[in-house]
Design a protein around this nucleic acid. Sequence first.
DNA 1: CTTGACCTTAGAGTATACTCTAAGGTGCAT
DNA 2: ATGCACCTTAGAGTATACTCTAAGGTCAAG
Lengths: 141, 141
Amino acid sequence: MSEMKIGQLAKASGVKTDTVRYYETLKLIEPAGRTRSGYRVYDEAAVDRITFIRRSKSLGFKLSEITSLLELQTSQTASCEDMLLRTKAKIKEAEENIQYLKRMRNALESLAADCPGGAQPLTECPILDYLAASTIEMNNK
Amino acid sequence: MSEMKIGQLAKASGVKTDTVRYYETLKLIEPAGRTRSGYRVYDEAAVDRITFIRRSKSLGFKLSEITSLLELQTSQTASCEDMLLRTKAKIKEAEENIQYLKRMRNALESLAADCPGGAQPLTECPILDYLAASTIEMNNK
DNA sequence: CTTGACCTTAGAGTATACTCTAAGGTGCAT
DNA sequence: ATGCACCTTAGAGTATACTCTAAGGTCAAG
């Protein structure tokens, strides 16, 4: 199965054919060639390339960033440092998002802790009070 | 300043006029009326409503969910429990996102820890190795 | 020779939350 | 009367990553 059409590649790499074509528009992947009738033909390396994309995505890289990772991979001049820097930047990004979500979760939890729940009328609800109160000022975003 | 036009409301509540109009299309807010010439007119309550939306957003609620929170607020039959349930669901969501990001960050960190960095050629880079390797299987998404 | 699974393209739709553009009307001051 | 800041609408654009539709061509099996 070293030569395959888009459907086989899709199945082998766990994405949809549409996704492969979409990646092609982003220059993330190119078919090795075409059949006489115009069908895309891929080799085994294409499966690795889709796998690379999927794994990068699972680590939080955007498709636009993956373009750059793939260039790195085939670059003659790039060093480990380049990849490490991208990785560290992504760690920082993840860390920031975690902190942001934690602040959110903590705020929600302290509101939840104050709320009696049950059949109390909403006029007594500290959560709605917080949301609607006009005096307290808030941090944006 | 109990009566105001959209620009004043926007300034008073910290959003753009476009955003106010956009919220109107989502039925999140409605002007109290219109001037003879067709200008939207708002009252003080509108500022509170935008504030409500902004605070809800800062807690992670989507605009579509905020529609429902606002309905809750004006409902006669709703109880504290309703609000508490929505809050708890949102906490769970935040928690899941935090866990997801932590897994991502941990994976990135263990890759970074293995990478020598510096001027090492990329053929030696364990990060790229991981991304490109065809044998190891991965967890999706 | 027809059926069915597969492939092709261009282009639109989905979700989220805006943001901007164009073309034009309003209202107050100078 | 003219300039300016403000307002109006409909509709398109932004970002991300697909996903789907329509209309049609290809190819092997029965």
